[in-house]
C-alpha cells in the first residue's frame, strides 16, 4: 500500500482505525465479564481463556482452512473454561478471584503447550468490510476497514443492554448478582445461574481471542495478548457494569492504545513509547476522577466479592 502524505491528520485517523481494530477483543472480553460480574462472580481467568481461544481458533483455522470454524472452536474452548470456573466456584469457601488467577495461568500454559506446532503455518483471516472504499486515500481505507467481529460486538453490546432490562434471563442474572437470598426466595438457584453466566462470559472471551489470532495482529505467537483479558476486567468496573459503557470504554482503550503507533507513523521518533502507556494512564485518571469518597460504587452488583 503506497502512502499519501496527509500530515498530522494521520494521527486522529490512525487512532480511529486503531480504536476499531484494537478495541474488538476488549469489547468481547468485557461484555463477557460484564455478564459474569452481573451474576455476582468475578472471573479473572479470562486472560487465560483469551490466549487459549486465540490458539484454538488459529489451530482449527489452519487445519480446516475455515476461520469461522476456528471462531467456533475458540468459543467452545472459552465456554469450557468458563463452566469449569463456575463449577469450582459453587463449592463453599472457594474464592472466585483465586480460582480466576489459577485458571489464567492454566489457560496460557495450556495454550503454549498445544500451540507450539502452529507458530509457523499461517491461517486464513476473518473477513473485514471495506467501509473506506469510497476514498482514494490509503490511510482512510486502512482506518475504515472494519472487521465483522467489531460490528457483531457493537450489536451485542446494544443487545445485552436491552436484554438486562427487558428479558427474563437478563433480570434473573441481575437478581442473582444483587441478592442471592432474594434469588433463592424466588426459587432460583444462584449457582446454576452463575455457572451459565460464567460459561457465556468465557465463550465471549474465547471469541475475543480468536480475533487476536485470526485478524489483528493475525498470527499465533506466545505474546499475542498484552493483558487484554485482565484489562477488560478493570474496564467493566470503569464502565459501571453497563454493556454500552463497556463498548465505549473498549473504544477509548483502543484509541488510546493506537496513540503510540500513530505518532510513530507520522514521524515522531522520540518518546512515543510513553504513549504506549496511554491506556493505562487514562484508566487511572478516569478512575480517580469518577471516584467518590462518600458514595459506594454506583451500579455494582451487591454479591460481587470485591464490593461486599
Amino acid at each position: 500500500m503506497e502512502t499519501t502524505d496527509i500530515g498530522l491528520w494521520g494521527v486522529p485517523l490512525a487512532m480511529l482505525g486503531g480504536a476499531i481494530r484494537v478495541s474488538t477483543p476488549f469489547i468481547f472480553v468485557s461484555l463477557g465479564e460484564a455478564i459474569t460480574e452481573r451474576s455476582g462472580r468475578i472471573n479473572l481467568g479470562l486472560e487465560g481463556t483469551l490466549v487459549f481461544g486465540a490458539m484454538s481458533a488459529y489451530a482449527v483455522a489452519v487445519m480446516t482452512g475455515s476461520p469461522w470454524l476456528g471462531l467456533l472452536a475458540a468459543a467452545l474452548a472459552g465456554l469450557c473454561f468458563g463452566l469449569f470456573h463456575g463449577w469450582i466456584c459453587k463449592f463453599p469457601k472457594v474464592n472466585d478471584i483465586a480460582i480466576g488467577i489459577a485458571l489464567m495461568l492454566f489457560g496460557t500454559g495450556l495454550a503454549f503447550f498445544f500451540g507450539k506446532p502452529f507458530i509457523q503455518p499461517s491461517a486464513p483471516d476473518l473477513p473485514a468490510i471495506p467501509f473506506g472504499a469510497w476514498s482514494d486515500i490509503p490511510q482512510v481505507q486502512a482506518a475504515l476497514n472494519v472487521n465483522v467481529l467489531f460490528l457483531i460486538g457493537a450489536a451485542l453490546a446494544v443487545f445485552l443492554w436491552w436484554a438486562f432490562r427487558n428479558t427474563r434471563i437478563g433480570l434473573m442474572v441481575r437478581v442473582v448478582g444483587d441478592s442471592a437470598d432474594a434469588a433463592r426466595a424466588m426459587g432460583l438457584n444462584p449457582n446454576t445461574v452463575r455457572l451459565l453466566a460464567t460459561g457465556v462470559g468465557g465463550a465471549l472471551a474465547g471469541i475475543g481471542g480468536a480475533y487476536l489470532s485470526l485478524y489483528y495482529p493475525g498470527s499465533w505467537t506466545e505474546r499475542i495478548s498484552s493483558g487484554q483479558g485482565l484489562m477488560a476486567v478493570a474496564l467493566v468496573i470503569f464502565a459501571r457494569w453497563n454493556p454500552l459503557g463497556c463498548f465505549a470504554a473498549a473504544l477509548l482503550f483502543g484509541g488510546a492504545g493506537a496513540l503510540g503507533p500513530a505518532l510513530q507513523s507520522v514521524g515522531v521518533t522520540e518518546g512515543y513509547y510513553l504513549f504506549y502507556a496511554a491506556p493505562y494512564i487514562l484508566t487511572l485518571i478516569i478512575m480517580i476522577a469518577t471516584s467518590s469518597r462518600s458514595r459506594t460504587l454506583a451500579g455494582a452488583p451487591g454479591e460481587l466479592s470485591i464490593t461486599k
Binding site: N166, R168, I169, L171, V175, D178, S179, A182, M186
Partner: peptide, 26 residues
Amino acid sequence: FTLVPSLTGAENLVISREKVPGVIDW
C-alpha cells in the same frame, strides 16, 4: 427485605412472578 436493591419496584414485581415471558413487554 427480600427485594432486589438494584432493580426497580416494577422489575421486582414482574421477575418474582411464577411465569415470566422470555421477553418482557414493559
